[in-house]
Design a protein around this nucleic acid. Sequence first.
DNA 1: GTCTATAGAGCGATAGAC
DNA 2: GTCTATCGCTCTATAGAC
Lengths: 215, 215
Amino acid sequence: MPNPLLKSGRRRPIRGGRDTREEILVAAEELLLRRGFNGFSYQHIAVRLGIRNAAIHYHFPTKEDLGVALVRRYRLRFLAWTDEAAQCASAFDRLVAYFQTYVDHLDGRLQICPVGIFGAEFDAIPDRMQREAQMMMRDVYEWMVRTLHDGLGDRSVVFSGDAHDKAMEMAAAMQGALQFASIAGRERFEQVFRQITLELRPASAAGDTGPAIAA
Amino acid sequence: MPNPLLKSGRRRPIRGGRDTREEILVAAEELLLRRGFNGFSYQHIAVRLGIRNAAIHYHFPTKEDLGVALVRRYRLRFLAWTDEAAQCASAFDRLVAYFQTYVDHLDGRLQICPVGIFGAEFDAIPDRMQREAQMMMRDVYEWMVRTLHDGLGDRSVVFSGDAHDKAMEMAAAMQGALQFASIAGRERFEQVFRQITLELRPASAAGDTGPAIAA
DNA sequence: GTCTATAGAGCGATAGAC
DNA sequence: GTCTATCGCTCTATAGAC
């Protein structure tokens, strides 16, 4: 009986115990968010990791493979996160927790799921990445619609109009805020965070400043 | 006395009366929105216009020059548009008119001012473009804050919280919506448009479906 | 699993003829 | 103002040694 804690499949510990494949993904993720998919190369990654171009091709034969792995990683991370977030006391808390995942990594630029990151260069990314991006977007959208409905049920959120439209508006605002933060600093993101949460919370009476943002 | 209809400055009518410089900008603008700045080349433009690579370099010596011209074009177009929009009856109408400019060109992809388009690849565009993008963003932001204040004055809009935060949220939502539309179709944009206008309008009583979207 | 070396393509850009 | 031709560079990707 194999130890269930040891994941089956690929062998990993190489280069003095470091996991090259994982390090490639981490570096590529940051480059993707700062420079776009067509704005970084295998060379950028190789220099950061102190390895050679060809070593990356061993782990990800084509750049499309790397791109697809990045999107899948986002999707899986988001789905795992929603499981954790299910323990939040209210739907409002779950939504704020989701927005907070952006803030937590804003300077390092790693997010749980920057769902619309590929929209700006959609026609210039490989087909398989396009499809993965569409699936990722659907996951986030459906979770958000569901959570808004939950929020109406537990009376933790208020909004007017349709939950589908509200979900899309919030997701779009988060995505745009991420881009504005790149252009004009993280304060832009915090403004959007404040406004979204302010509008979502019931009894937004005077004096209530809403959830604080992590420093 | 010179004819005031004939603009002073650069001579233009070439290639059978066609304005190559302008055609380059139009083609580049659409490529930029669909593929990102690093996702299109002079070749893409040359093929579309039936000219040669070198002809583009005559009008825009470097790609940075072309990029800067594109952002300046957006800025000037937006500033000219705000002058026109000043004739709208209310601040709410001006905001809706601004959102509408996105819709009008959504399939052709030409917008008045997709203010955050460079956020996704900010670190991978030339310095001068970065600075121009920051100025463009500031223009839109300031106009939006001013218009929200006007809206409080003429009672045509309602919102909670600070006008600066609300402006940033709306601008971010529009930008995100544009990217979502690239990924999942223009209906995504229309959802955000509906929700933003719904939340902005006073007396959003039942039965009021808000401003219609142009087909 | 990582290396050296290199192929092959596309890129931005320039020179000079017309 | 547009062309042909080409340069030098970077990019993705592969072959083969270790």
